[in-house]
């Protein structure tokens, strides 16, 4: 099967500051890829490159063998949906309206059609926010907001879902629910790419992890492959311990201080 994304020697330079350098990466349908790395490693920039919101300074980024820069925003939005960590609404759009905005790249008519409503209903059902539909988005809890934003992304009927720190504001239960839902989507053929800070979350759900450091790829592989203390120490700049429990994904811990 052909990969969905192909990045070759992709670099982004802003204000003479290299944000991404020589990234080589292939991402395929059905994968749940998590991008990990310390602050400023270029995780969000990489995600924005995939979403077509960031221009490359050098190298190539292809979506389905086509240069991303040559794809119109509308065509892009039908294939790739991006979920931002938070959205601050100035006005009281209802949950239903926010989800419906995901239909924008598909709607040619001025009013939404039956297909649009069907997709919105389906997306709200997947993200379990049907009962929120008439609520003012601004009055939702962070967890509810995140579910609505993902639903809005799903309403775009994309084949790629990009999530930026989506789990950061969620409690454990909602984190689990979000990633369970994402996992189900990958089994339906979606490519899901998520940025997070949380190794344990990544290790639990990711089929592959991309480790970034200072704008370069430090390592790519399955959680088990990357779960080596020296590698993680180097990437995050602190001593970390890896705890392996049989039959479970490896857990990373900060070393305890027995003297205390």
């Amino acid at each position: 099967m052909k990969p969905v994304y192909q990045l070759r020697q992709a670099s982004v330079v802003k204000n003479a500051q290299p944000l991404l350098e020589n990234i080589d990466l292939e991402l395929s349908a059905g994968e749940l890829v998590v991008i990990l790395g310390p602050n400023g490693a270029g995780k969000s920039t990489l995600l924005r490159v995939l979403a077509g919101l960031e221009q490359l300074s050098a190298g190539a980024a292809l979506l389905s063998s086509e240069p991303i820069a040559a794809i119109s925003r509308r065509t892009m939005a039908r294939q790739v949906a991006m979920v931002e960590p938070t959205v601050a609404l100035p006005f009281g759009y209802s949950v239903e309206q926010v989800v419906m905005m995901g239909r924008a790249p598909h709607m040619d008519a001025w009013f939404e059609g039956s297909e649009d409503w069907a997709q919105v209903e389906a997306a709200m059902r997947v993200m379990d926010c049907e009962n929120l539909r008439n609520r003012d988005f601004r009055n939702l809890s962070s967890g509810e907001m995140q579910r609505v934003l993902v639903a809005s992304a799903l309403a775009q009927q994309p084949c790629v879902l990009l999530l930026d720190e989506s789990a950061a504001f969620l409690d454990v239960r909602h984190q689990m629910e979000l990633f369970e839902a994402l996992h189900r989507l990958t089994s339906q053929g979606y490519l899901v790419v998520a940025v997070t800070h949380d190794w344990n979350l990544a290790a639990r759900w990711a089929s592959r992890i991309v480790l970034l450091k200072s704008g370069r790829i430090a390592a790519v592989g399955s959680p088990t492959e990357l779960a080596s203390a020296p590698l993680l120490n180097e990437v995050f700049g602190v001593p970390l311990e890896v705890l392996e429990i049989k039959g479970r994904p490896p857990i990373v811990l900060q070393p305890g201080d027995p003297a205390r």
Binding site: A51, L53, S72, R73, R74, T75, M76, A77, R78, A81, M82, E84, V87, A88, L89, P90, F91, Y93, Q97, V98, M101, G102, A104, P105, Q156
Partner: peptide, 18 residues
């Protein structure tokens, strides 16, 4: 304007040439 009222990056993620 609906999309832009939410935000520029939101609007372009939803396929608008902002």
């Amino acid at each position: 304007w609906n999309l832009l009222a939410v935000g520029q990056s939101w609007a372009s993620a939803k396929g608008l040439d902002t």
